[in-house]
Deep mutational scan, measured.
Amino acid sequence: MSGIALSRLAQERKAWRKDHPFGFVAVPTKNPDGTMNLMNWECAIPGKKGTPWEGGLFKLRMLFKDDYPSSPPKCKFEPPLFHPNVYPSGTVCLSILEEDKDWRPAITIKQILLGIQELLNEPNIQDPAQAEAYTIYCQNRVEYEKRVRAQAKKFAPS
């Protein structure tokens, strides 16, 4: 494992614990031996107030490669969400998460999670990743928002 990646992720964890947006979660997972795995984080993004996503808490896994922060983490909703920019596998399609697009090593975990929260309610229809959600979003916004509200209710924190 890269010392650069681990040191950056340790800084990220410290900064997150000191200050993070209300309702968001970002925690490194534990290895079988109980030690912390900084390369694999369990996160959760709350649906934004005043949107059909409100009330939901959407679980996301963030996986970092050894060359982080040169390369972005892979962000994957578990379980996958109904959304035009979420692949059926759950992987998020967002330009700041793509090395050859808008990724920059200075982007923080907090910025990534806030960017994904923004994307939930403002899909990028130029870059669809899920045919069904994309089609319904474009053709029947009322039905799309109904499905999103049902999903938010399903993923409401207990």
Rank of each mutant, 00 (worst) to 15 (best):
M1T: 00
S2Y: 12
G3Q: 05
G3D: 14
I4N: 06
A5C: 15
S7M: 14
S7F: 02
A10V: 11
Q11P: 11
E12F: 02
K14E: 03
A15R: 11
W16Q: 04
W16A: 05
R17A: 01
R17Y: 00
R17Q: 03
K18I: 05
D19I: 04
D19F: 12
H20F: 04
H20K: 04
P21Y: 04
P21L: 05
F22N: 04
F22Q: 04
F22C: 02
G23T: 01
G23M: 02
G23S: 11
A26F: 13
A26E: 02
A26Q: 04
V27Q: 01
V27D: 01
T29S: 14
N31I: 10
N31M: 13
N31L: 14
N31Y: 13
P32W: 12
D33I: 03
G34M: 08
G34N: 07
T35C: 02
T35L: 02
T35M: 05
T35W: 03
M36G: 04
M36N: 00
L38R: 00
L38P: 08
N40L: 13
W41K: 06
E42R: 10
E42W: 08
C43F: 06
A44F: 02
P46I: 09
P46Q: 04
G47N: 03
G47H: 07
G47R: 01
G47S: 01
K48V: 04
K48P: 15
K49R: 14
K49D: 09
K49F: 13
G50D: 06
G50E: 13
G50R: 13
T51R: 00
T51P: 03
W53N: 08
W53T: 01
E54G: 11
G55D: 14
G55K: 09
G56M: 07
G56Y: 04
G56P: 09
G56L: 02
L57I: 10
L57K: 09
L57C: 12
F58S: 03
F58V: 09
F58M: 07
K59T: 12
K59I: 10
K59W: 15
L60C: 14
L60V: 09
L63W: 00
L63R: 12
F64A: 03
K65P: 11
K65W: 02
D66S: 10
Y68Q: 00
Y68N: 01
Y68E: 02
Y68T: 06
Y68F: 09
Y68C: 05
P69N: 01
P69V: 05
P72R: 06
P73F: 03
P73M: 15
K74L: 15
C75K: 00
F77S: 02
F77W: 01
F77T: 06
P79N: 15
P79G: 14
P79V: 14
F82W: 10
F82M: 05
H83K: 05
H83R: 00
P84H: 00
N85F: 09
N85C: 04
Y87A: 03
P88S: 14
P88C: 00
S89K: 11
G90K: 03
G90R: 01
G90D: 06
T91M: 10
T91W: 14
T91S: 15
V92W: 04
V92R: 02
C93P: 00
L94I: 05
S95W: 07
S95N: 14
S95T: 09
E98G: 15
E98Y: 15
E98W: 10
E99M: 11
E99N: 08
D100C: 04
K101R: 13
D102L: 04
R104C: 11
R104W: 04
P105L: 03
A106Y: 01
I107K: 06
I107E: 11
T108S: 14
T108L: 15
I109C: 07
K110L: 06
Q111W: 14
L113D: 03
L113F: 06
L114A: 12
G115I: 01
I116T: 13
Q117W: 08
E118A: 09
N121R: 11
N121Y: 09
N121W: 09
N121H: 09
P123M: 01
P123V: 08
I125R: 02
I125T: 09
I125A: 08
I125C: 11
Q126G: 11
D127S: 07
D127K: 00
D127P: 00
A129I: 02
A129P: 04
A129W: 00
Q130V: 05
Q130F: 07
Q130M: 01
Y134W: 07
T135E: 11
T135K: 06
I136Y: 11
I136G: 02
Y137M: 11
C138L: 07
C138A: 15
C138S: 13
C138R: 12
Q139Y: 14
Q139T: 12
N140A: 15
R141V: 10
R141L: 10
E143I: 08
Y144C: 00
K146L: 10
K146Y: 12
R147N: 05
R147F: 03
V148A: 09
R149N: 09
A150D: 12
A150T: 12
Q151H: 05
A152M: 05
K154N: 09
F155C: 11
A156L: 07
S158Q: 12
